[in-house]
Design a protein around this nucleic acid. Structure first.
Lengths: 158, 158
DNA sequence: CCCATTTAATTCAGTATTCAACATTTACGG
DNA sequence: CCGTAAATGTTGAATACTGAATTAAATGGG
């Protein structure tokens, strides 16, 4: 891991930044979850719907879907099973690689997506986006991007 | 909820900022969790330890602990039960209000905290804090603070 | 004082997540 | 080619989370 002995403790500024980030993450997820509840969807459901509806033919390989939603394969498998039971997606086998499966958006899944998306966007605006100035949002993205990159390499590479 | 019909979709900039924030949140939590694993702690465990060790007499009422860690009472109750079994905390009844309970840090909990904290701080630095310039970190905190406040009122008030 | 409310915390049942074990198919080195 | 290794997904058991119902104690208006 890291050499601990000479790692300086967080300053007051750093402490505050860190805790604020933590709080925002958690509160935000909770709020979005609450706003999706009336539509019978969870954040996870919604994210799957987004990814599939943006994909070629509204379908993705399980692995790719797991990667792009940052979940384990196991978790995704359970998740897709639930959504399959709910009629939002279905599994389809893959010609070129007989180990593989596609998760495919059903008509119902697509309709659900189109119906819910505007509300979700409104929710994201209300609780996040619209609370920043354009400049702040730009700055936020700029400073967060290297962090995301760092974490992605940390994750795969090592 | 919100009037949906006239909510503009997210622009490209907004979209990117939003997704980057999401990715950072998730990847970061995963990474911190991984870094805590060798010590047999989860993020949730660690957060409880932090809160208790900073508190008067290293103890907090269940309600207060739930509030400051932003969890439901139910979840906290389970969490404390687990940590009690692990010997990190214990429950103590409250004199002034016989409905109430304190969660109290044990010696072992305190020792664990002192042992693990440096590593955790190193982890937070490595994967978050040290990836920003001082100015960016300050800007981050400044722009995130109103969001946290908004979400907190949204949560309790309504 | 008494009863209806509110507050503190837990419990229970249903659901979701994790982690390891497994089956199957593909890739590749010799 | 063969056989071992790697990749794709699923499953099952253990663990954790959620939301509603429950117990118990405090509060407060009439």
């Amino acid at each position: 891991m890291t050499t601990d002995s000479d790692t300086p403790w967080l300053t007051d500024q750093e402490q505050r930044a860190w805790r604020t980030h933590l709080d925002v993450s958690r509160l935000l997820m909770h709020q979005l979850e609450r706003d999706l509840q009336p539509f019978g969807l969870t954040n996870n459901d919604y994210e799957i719907l987004v990814n599939l509806s943006e994909a070629e033919d509204r379908r993705l390989r399980m692995s790719d879907l797991a990667a792009s939603t940052l979940q384990s394969k196991s978790r995704l498998s359970h998740q897709i099973t639930r959504m399959e039971n709910a009629g939002l997606v279905r599994r389809e086998s893959c010609e070129s690689d007989r180990r593989g499966l596609y998760a495919v958006l059903t008509e119902e899944g697509w309709d659900t997506m189109r119906r819910v998306a505007p509300h979700h966007v409104a929710s994201v605006r209300k609780h996040f986006i619209d609370l920043f100035s354009a400049e702040d949002l730009q700055a936020l993205r700029a400073s967060l991007t290297p962090v995301a990159e760092h974490l992605r390499t940390e994750r795969g590479g090592v």
